[in-house]
């Protein structure tokens, strides 16, 4: 888990934020809130109150305006999460092709339940609603990547891959 002690964007990120702000008319900088929250989650791992306050200050808006938004959208983790968040789609079309079993298999393999994180901080299981891959299910998203046509063997391979990545510097 990444500790959120030092909440400041790098100079490169700040430059990116400046580019984002230019996309909206003068005085409408609040529009950049979602793109910036995505960047913040990438850098800080999750959206703590400190992160929200920082975003509010960047945008020069009230803190509550960021709280309102960050709590409405499901992509933002409001609590610390594991290094790999396994977001498994559980909606109808994926259920028709076996997503229930995929969730069960993951829970068994990692000895955690939906919503929990492994003690080593490597994995969080999070069931989510339709991700627009309904014809290629069962599926899960990890980071920006979609993993489709999941099977138990495929999951074994993927988890192994994530573990190996974690041991590399």
């Amino acid at each position: 888990m990444i500790e959120t002690t030092n909440i400041t964007f790098s100079p490169e990120r700040l430059a990116e934020v400046q580019t984002l702000l230019k996309r909206y008319p003068e005085g409408k900088q609040k529009s950049a809130i979602l793109p910036i929250l995505h960047l913040a989650q990438k850098d800080f791992g999750w959206i703590s109150v400190e992160v929200m306050d920082y975003v509010a200050e960047l945008l020069d808006i009230q803190h509550i305006e960021v709280y309102e938004v960050a709590t409405f959208y499901t992509m933002f983790h409001l609590k610390p999460v594991g290094k790999n968040v396994l977001e498994v789609c559980r909606t109808g079309p994926c259920m028709l092709v076996g997503s229930d079993n995929i969730v069960k298999y993951l829970e068994q393999k990692l000895s955690i339940q939906d919503g929990e994180t492994t003690p080593d901080g490597l994995f969080t299981i999070k069931t989510v609603e339709c991700l627009g891959a309904c014809g290629y299910g069962p599926m899960m998203q990890v980071g920006e990547k979609y993993h489709e046509f999941l099977s138990e063997e495929r999951i074994d391979q993927l988890l192994e891959g994530f573990r190996q990545n974690a041991t590399q510097p």
């Binding site: 996309r23 409408k28 609040k30 529009s31 950049a32 809130i33 979602l34 793109p35 929250l37 995505h38 808006i61 305006e65 309102e68 938004v69 409405f72 959208y73 499901t74 992509m75 933002f76 989510v128 609603e129 339709c130």
Partner: peptide, 23 residues
């Protein structure tokens, strides 16, 4: 412009609110 994970933001006026930086 990216959304943040909310089905309702496909409804056009919700989309507009979202693009304005709101719920």
């Amino acid at each position: 412009h990216p959304g943040g994970g909310a089905y309702i933001c496909g409804e056009e006026t919700a989309l507009i609110e979202s693009l304005e930086g709101k719920r």
